[in-house]
């Protein structure tokens, strides 16, 4: 799989300790949920950030998507907590 830019916001960003990184996940990482599971195994900071993965929201190329969405040709995937703007 080609490289994907990952972006993290709010407490997801704080727990991971970075706002952005580039990753090349293995071919069996097909969906957003697969990517979350793969990231969680990368280290304690990821495990902490994605502890309750059901509350984490995801966006592919700046559009909200559910976790079962296939990554496909995504260039940018973002993970963040529920929004609290307005």
């Amino acid at each position: 799989m080609s490289e994907i830019t990952l972006r993290y916001f709010a407490w997801v960003r704080e727990r991971i300790g970075a706002g952005e990184e580039t990753v090349a996940p293995p071919a069996d990482v097909r969906t957003v949920a697969d990517l979350l599971a793969w990231l969680k195994a990368r280290g304690p900071e990821y495990a902490h950030a994605f502890e309750q993965s059901h509350v984490i929201r995801a966006a592919i190329d700046q559009t909200h998507v559910p976790h079962e969405t296939a990554i496909g040709e995504a260039r940018e995937i973002a993970f963040f907590p529920p929004m609290t703007g307005g």
Partner: peptide, 23 residues
């Protein structure tokens, strides 16, 4: 409020580390 990607963090008057506002 529920879809635009914005997140609020509180800064307290006593300088303590504030929390992220919960949805």
């Amino acid at each position: 409020k529920t879809r635009a990607p914005f997140w609020k963090k509180e800064h307290r008057i006593d300088d303590s580390e504030g929390d992220w506002v919960e949805a």
